[in-house]
């Protein structure tokens, strides 16, 4: 089974700033990490590869510093990685980004399954996975929290939604987006991390994947951001409960019930 995992490097902060001019997230000077939801995608791919054989290839569209996230994926078991990086990709919205990723997947070839995290924690759109499926015209299942009955032709997945869950069968090739809880991502070993530092990661540009120049970057992005602003900070209040332990416990339960937490 050849599995491609699409990952994104995101700012490692809850204190995201938005450029008032460009309406985009400011990434300069902020420590970057592998999108947490993508760690579940990588782990699921590695688990499937370990059970059924094949190869896990991780791809990302981004600047050169996104190599660190690709190396992180290799350190936990991905076989190889490819960075999609070129100034022409800059400014791509989710539609253009999913187009570029889809072209890279076609270039890799013989891919049975694409796995993405359910969304990136910076943009929170959850559109890139479905966008890839649309560009490739493959079956897709989003918000998947369980995979079973995998054969060489299809698989069964459980996908979560507001009212419960669906169990779906998908024939390969297919695209999945996965949620937290589908697995517990492994922690890199030292040997894995050192090996990842030595991995050669090719960088592909528009010519390598045969993109239509009108479909990438700002030109290829139909999204127009009218207004963006950070959410208002959540109000917090601390209430101290004191007294005997039993009384404190009773009071704590009462407070939690008042707030519909219990």
């Amino acid at each position: 089974m050849r599995i491609v995992v699409c990952v994104k490097q995101v700012p490692a902060t809850n204190d995201a700033r938005i450029d008032p001019e460009t309406k985009r997230i400011v990434r300069e000077g902020v420590k970057a990490i592998l999108n947490p939801f993508d760690t579940y995608a990588v782990e699921e791919a590695v688990l499937l590869r370990n059970r059924f054989g094949g190869e896990v290839i991780v791809i990302s569209m981004g600047p050169e510093k996104a190599l660190a996230s690709l190396r992180e994926a290799i350190s936990v078991g991905a076989d190889r990685a490819i960075l999609l990086s070129n100034r022409a990709f800059g400014g791509s919205d989710t539609w253009a980004t999913s187009y570029v990723l889809a072209r890279a997947i076609q270039k890799i070839g013989q891919v049975d399954l694409v796995i993405c995290g359910k969304q990136a924690v910076d943009g929170d759109t959850a559109q890139v996975g479905p966008g890839i499926a649309a560009h490739l015209d493959w079956l897709q299942a989003t918000n998947v929290n369980h995979v079973e009955d995998v054969t060489d032709r299809d698989m069964k997945v459980t996908r979560m939604h507001e009212d419960g869950y669906d169990v779906c069968e998908l024939a390969f090739p297919a695209v999945l987006t996965v949620v937290k809880g589908i697995n517990i991502p492994r922690v890199p070993t030292l040997r894995g991390r050192l090996a990842s530092l030595k991995s050669e990661i090719p960088v592909w540009g528009p010519a390598d994947i045969g993109t239509d120049i009108d479909k990438i970057g700002l030109e290829g992005s139909p999204t127009r951001v009218v207004k963006t602003e950070p959410p208002k900070p959540r109000s917090t209040a601390t209430k101290k409960i004191s007294g005997a332990a039993v009384d404190c416990a009773i009071e704590l339960v009462r407070e939690l019930r008042l707030r519909s937490i219990l």
Partner: peptide, 12 residues
């Protein structure tokens, strides 16, 4: 704080 495992460091 996630760190690498001591025995593996000694080995490597």
């Amino acid at each position: 704080l996630l760190g690498f495992q001591g025995s593996e460091i000694i080995d490597v």
